[in-house]
Amino acid sequence: MSIIAESVRLTGPTLRALILERLGQIKCGRYAVISIPGLWLAVFFFIPFLVVFKISLAETAIAIPPYTSLFEFDLEEALLEISINLGNYRYLFEDDFYLAAYLNSAKIAAISTFFTLLIGFPMAYLIARSHGTTRTLLLSLVILPFWTSFLLRVYAWMGILQKNGIVNDFLMSIGLIDTPLTILQTDIAVYIGIVYTYLPFMVLPLYTALEKLDGALLEAAQDLGCKPAQTFFLITLPLSLPGVVAGCLLVFIPAVGEFVIPALLGGSDTLMIGRVLWDEFFLSRDWPMASAVATVMLIVLVLPIMLIRNNAEKQGEAA
């Protein structure tokens, strides 16, 4: 597909006027303050995203870089030629392979997030309820794994889960099983890997939310007739919901695009979008297609999350 448009020209005076106007705005310190996170987002998120999006509209080429350029500028005729290739996106929707990969990634991420929450919540609760040095100790234990390489820790799990690994040796020594279990190269190993790796990302926001929880509220609930379980579901859980949401997003989003864990712990039949992306990029050498996959993943992931957040904020304001 090719669209031909006339060149857009910014003449000297208008450009200067524009710059002056901008400078006038920036003078106000408040704009400057707001612009710092804005700048951060622009430099580290928006511009890279635009680059990826641009590549997704190109075609593959045997060249450096291995894709065609979108813009051709003919100086003599003042002609700007823009060629946009939407074929990658069409292919993305035509081939149900991608849909299957997206859905399976979402499924694996969702199940992992659920178990991370299930394990992370009691941990965060315990830490938030402990005091002084115990709390500091427990918190640093949560953060401690970050001191070693992520890759190394995943490799360690290979050692733990393999046929003659610790888990199987232990289960066989206590006589629970006769033949070693196959855990490695299954989805279960992927779940274990993701839950293990992302647990701190769940525990920390949960801890922050639970730590802020006023103990008097729990006592008030008990005082008004709540048994501990009721207190948990009626007070603790609803009030820690922001932490739950934050933790789940922090686990779910990277888990969807996870590549290393399924590659090392999962079986060859573990279909995940991160793996598909890798294959498109490295095996097919199709940078535009890989970019299209990445763009769609970002939109599919980020849009609903932004909508949820917006909705939650609106509700918060209305209340």
Binding site: E219, D223, L224, C226, L239
Partner: peptide
């Protein structure tokens, strides 16, 4: 006797109203 079983209620210093 657990707090939730006592014929006693308490008004807390911080009021402890459930914010949600």
């Amino acid at each position: 006797i657990q707090p939730w079983k006592r014929p006693v209620n308490m008004m807390f210093q911080s009021y402890a109203l459930f914010p949600h």
